[in-house]
């Protein structure tokens, strides 16, 4: 299926540039990794909804990445029966732009040369209730942060990040690998969990959680910890570590990198990023049981 056909009535009419009618005159700057990120064109209700989710990250400063929120007509979007539906955004990327389409959202990222975002949504109109906006906003932010970190030499990684002795252990793996299980086990041991879902891996390499929805409460995205080790999760009945080579390490992280790893214009650069970031950082395949024996075999500071 070509780009946008799963969500839009007329994908050929996708906005060719970041322009349109803003929802309102409200502006918001958020302190997310790679930012600050500015959002303008918000209505008062949209600002309130965004603040309800990300209010603790609000900043009073100039943004490094600016996004404008525009009105879209509800009629532009297909009506989708979401029962039993697995939601995935649709992407179309190029060297200087990325287009995305989803449930009641279209968006663009443009490099001219600095990264700018544009989000069109009907959320708040008579046909699309305002309470859809937080999810739409967060979905857009996930993509925006992933691409922003990529251009800064970092990445967004699916994983559970646990703090031990002032350093971070990153437990990575696909859905069902045990990230949330590890995070819960860590909490039960009194350890700090940065996130059980999405993390920002930044040059250093340092790790910080991203405040996007996981099974746990919102992550603290301002605290940064040096990365001690990567653990690729494999559920088992006992607990064992096996060192990973550079290829397996990079492949693990690449597989756990949302959005950018499927971008034909950027995945090769992402692989290079990981090879560089993980130079000198130990990585292991971790087979772990629910008995908790893994905590005794993890690499120490």
């Amino acid at each position: 299926m070509s780009f946008g056909h799963g969500f839009l009535r007329n994908p050929d009419l996708f906005p060719a540039r970041p322009a349109g009618e803003p929802w309102g005159d409200r502006e918001l700057v958020l302190d997310l990794p790679g930012g600050p990120y500015g959002f303008s064109g918000l209505s008062a209700d949209q600002e309130e909804a965004a603040l309800a989710r990300f209010g603790d990250l609000r900043l009073d400063s100039e943004p490094a990445v600016a996004t404008t929120v525009f009105r879209a007509a509800a009629e532009d979007f297909l009506e989708i029966d979401t029962r039993g539906w697995e939601y995935a955004l649709d992407f179309d990327s190029g060297p200087s732009s990325v287009r995305l389409a989803g449930l009641d959202l279209t968006g663009r990222l443009d490099w001219r040369p600095a990264l700018r975002g544009a989000l069109w949504t009907p959320a708040g109109s008579a046909l699309v209730p305002e309470d859809r906006f937080p999810g739409i906003f967060e979905n857009f932010c996930r993509v925006l942060v992933a691409y922003r970190l990529h251009e800064l030499g970092g990445a967004v990684v699916h994983g559970a990040a646990v703090v031990d002795g002032g350093e971070a252990l990153l437990f990575a793996g696909p859905s069902g690998a045990g990230k949330s299980t590890v995070a819960r086990m860590a909490l039960e041991r009194g350890m700090t969990v940065l996130s059980d879902d999405l993390n920002a891996l930044l040059p250093g390499p340092v790790l910080c959680g991203l405040p996007f929805t996981g099974d746990l409460d919102k992550a603290d995205s301002r605290a940064r910890y040096p990365l001690r080790a990567l653990l690729r999760l494999e559920k088992d009945t006992d607990d064992r570590l096996r060192p990973l080579g550079r290829a397996e390490t990079a492949a693990c992280l690449l597989a756990c990198s949302p959005f950018v790893n499927a971008d034909p214009d950027r995945h090769a650069a992402l692989l290079s990023t990981y090879l560089g970031l993980m130079e000198g950082v130990p990585a292991y395949a971790l087979r772990f049981s629910l008995a908790g024996g893994m905590w005794g075999i993890l690499p120490e500071a």
């Binding site: 080579g245 550079r246 290829a247 492949a251 693990c252 690449l254 597989a255 790893n261 499927a262």
Partner: peptide
């Protein structure tokens, strides 16, 4: 090729193989 092994990416499915 990384250290003699191949990191293979299937873009359509975002699958990565070594």
């Amino acid at each position: 090729i990384v250290d003699g092994e191949a990191v293979v990416v299937r873009q359509r499915s975002s699958e990565v193989l070594v």
